[in-house]
């Protein structure tokens, strides 16, 4: 069994020690630096993005009470069901220069091409945003569980000692949830490193698109394997960082006396903000892209019932 798991790694390593063709120096001279910058930049951005979205929503669900909380508790997982490249197609289409948003802005204000600035969606920053929106549930799931169970007793002790929610969040909840946060971010970063759809659609050269180009474009399996080996080193670095974040502190899982934490009851403006804080990730990471897909399908004159396979037809064709 473990041989099956290790076999792909062996293939890559065997391939990488084949004598280098003259393609490898060419890649090093031209595109490799861009692959490194883009890959690491996007991975780092997604780690930060998923941490913010995941921890924020996890705190609201685990520690606060507000209308719709139990519905959001599961709805916040939905973006995980949306493949990154599908979200990339939707947002690329909505937010590009020719898309409905910018077209409406130009028509509404009478702007021309040079009259305004709009962030380019098909860019590394766009990829970070799209991937963070569909991958934050990894962090949310793990950290929410950590908040709700592991640290309940300690957090309540903190409360009894008169600490406010912000102090508890900063000094107790976050340090205690650090292993869960590190694991969730590591999962999100792994998904990012192996993503090809978003990078390809947004025209960004990363290791994964580079491997594809070296293998299927140049037909050079050796160069592809060398690129893959570098990517594996990045993966190892991520795993090392994840372990390191857990080291030096010992985390004791609660014994059988553990029970759910008592939540802050939010009212008025605070509860509205909490609802907004949960609705935005669900809306942008799932509901809006799904609605746009259905809308496109109806616009094309097809019944909604057959809208699932249509996502495939949206992929750029030959």
């Amino acid at each position: 069994m473990s041989l099956l798991l290790v076999a792909p790694l062996l293939v890559v390593l065997f391939g990488a020690i084949d004598p280098a063709t003259d393609l490898w120096p060419h890649l090093v001279d031209t595109v490799l630096a861009g692959y490194v910058v883009n890959t690491i930049g996007i991975a780092f951005g997604v780690a930060v993005g998923t941490a913010i979205l995941g921890v924020g929503t996890a705190w609201l669900i685990a520690m606060c009470d507000f209308p719709g909380r139990s519905m959001f508790a599961w709805a916040l997982i939905l973006p995980l069901a949306l493949p990154g490249y599908v979200a990339a197609i939707v947002y690329g289409d909505l937010l590009e220069f020719a898309g409905p948003v910018q077209t409406a802005l130009r028509d509404g204000f009478g702007w021309g091409k040079a009259d305004y600035w709009f962030p380019a969606v098909r860019s590394p920053l766009g990829a970070i945003a799209v991937l963070s929106l569909v991958l934050y549930p990894y962090v949310y799931l793990l950290v929410q569980t950590a908040f709700a169970t592991q640290s309940a007793t300690l957090i309540e002790t903190g409360r009894l000692l008169g600490r406010g929610p912000l102090t508890i969040f900063r000094t107790l909840a976050i340090p205690l949830a650090r292993p869960a946060l590190a694991a969730g971010c590591a999962l999100a970063v792994m998904e990012t490193l192996n993503d090809i759809g978003v990078a390809e659609l947004f025209g960004i050269g990363t290791f994964t698109t580079g491997i594809y180009r070296a293998w299927f474009g140049f037909g050079d399996v050796g160069a592809a394997a060398r690129l893959a080996t570098v990517l594996l080193l990045v993966v190892l670095a991520v795993l090392w960082a994840e372990r390191r974040l857990r080291r030096s502190i010992r985390y004791h899982p609660e014994n059988d006396r553990s029970r759910p934490v008592i939540r802050y009851a939010l009212r008025g403006r605070r509860s509205a903000l909490a609802i907004l804080g949960c609705a935005l990730p669900v809306g942008l990471g799932f509901a809006l892209p799904a609605a746009v897909l259905v809308w496109w399908h109806v616009r094309a004159g097809a019944p909604v019932s057959s809208s699932i396979p249509s996502a495939w037809r949206l992929v750029p064709q030959c």
Binding site: E96, F97, T103
Partner: peptide, 14 residues
């Protein structure tokens, strides 16, 4: 970025 249709869209939109 995008496919050939997207390039035509870019021309249409300016």
């Amino acid at each position: 970025s995008g496919g050939d249709r997207d390039q035509i869209r870019a021309v249409v939109s300016g």
